[in-house]
Simulated scan of single mutants.
Amino acid sequence: MTSPRTVVFDLDGTLVDTAPDLIGALNVVLAAEGLPPVPLHEARNMIGGGVRKLLERGLEAEGREVSLAELTRMTDDFIGYYAEHIADDSRPFDGLEAALDELAASGHRLAVCTNKLEWLSRRLLERLNLSPRFAAICGADTFGVSKPDPAILRQTVERAGGELSATIMVGDAGPDVGVARRAGVPVIGVSFGYTEVPIADLKPDRLIHHYSELTAAIAGFSQQARIAT
């Protein structure tokens, strides 16, 4: 029997494969600047630090330097386009919804903690009919801090009505492992997301390759805690 916990998920590359729409928006902005598109397979690992970071990486890949004012303008252009195309091709990763059903049936509280803007995160999850599953959906602008700052995870858990001592983080990249470590909670890495450094190299407490493995990974933490006591 698994003790109910708060399970906090990253969004891009963890819950949802958002790369097609994110890179699509990036390439629209790059095209407006007279730059060639970045291939999807090359750009997937640019995702993860928010819109501005994605643009910076896309521009760097093209050898282009811009001023802060230009970057701000391009960020606004990106968000304007992306908001209208946020779920054109983005889809939940295989097995996600079944895993969320299992967790909810076991009494787990679910939340989202992402470096995406909150309103964009909500719009995406609403378009995919996922938002009702989460007790809290928090982004980089929700509390004014981003992962790996532990404050964003602590406040996400609080908003969800959970306890940090009974929380597990699930993510695909360094900011997710970092925020969990700094907040003192265990972290499960997913191998199918977006990361420049392979997730296994970041040494999460558990590593899964498909959502069918998630409930067993979470149960393993409870079993480990019982053995320790």
Score class of each variant (00 low, 15 high):
Thr156Arg: 02
Pro37Gln: 03
Glu62Asn: 10
Leu125Lys: 04
Ile79Met: 12
Arg127Gln: 15
Val190Arg: 11
Val29Leu: 02
Tyr82Ser: 06
His108Leu: 02
Thr72Tyr: 10
Pro186Gln: 05
Leu11Asp: 02
Phe221Ala: 00
Ser222Gln: 10
Ala166Glu: 13
Thr2Gln: 15
Arg133Asp: 11
Val28Glu: 09
Ala105Asn: 02
Gln223Tyr: 13
Val38Arg: 03
Arg73Ser: 14
Gly184Gln: 12
Ile23Ser: 06
Ala219Gln: 15
Ile227Glu: 15
Ser3Tyr: 09
Gln223Val: 15
Phe221Tyr: 09
Gly48Ser: 09
Lys116Gln: 07
Glu60Tyr: 13
Glu65Gly: 11
Ser106Asn: 08
Val197Gln: 08
Ile188Ser: 04
Ser131Thr: 05
Gly63Asp: 04
Ala160Leu: 12
Ser165Thr: 12
Ala19Glu: 04
Leu22Trp: 06
Ala98Cys: 07
Arg5Ser: 00
Gly184Ile: 10
Val177Cys: 07
Ile47Ser: 08
Glu163Leu: 07
Ser212Ala: 15
Gly50Ile: 02
Gly174Phe: 10
Asp88Phe: 12
Pro186Trp: 00
Arg44Asn: 08
Ser212Gly: 14
Asp176Gly: 02
Gly58Val: 00
Thr14Arg: 05
Gly49Ile: 03
Glu213Met: 01
Ser146Ile: 06
Phe134Leu: 01
Gly184Val: 14
Tyr194Val: 09
Gly63Pro: 09
Gly178His: 12
Ala87Thr: 06
Gly107Gln: 05
Ile199Tyr: 02
Thr167Glu: 00
Val7Tyr: 01
Ala19Pro: 10
Arg127Asp: 14
Glu126Cys: 12
Glu42Gln: 15
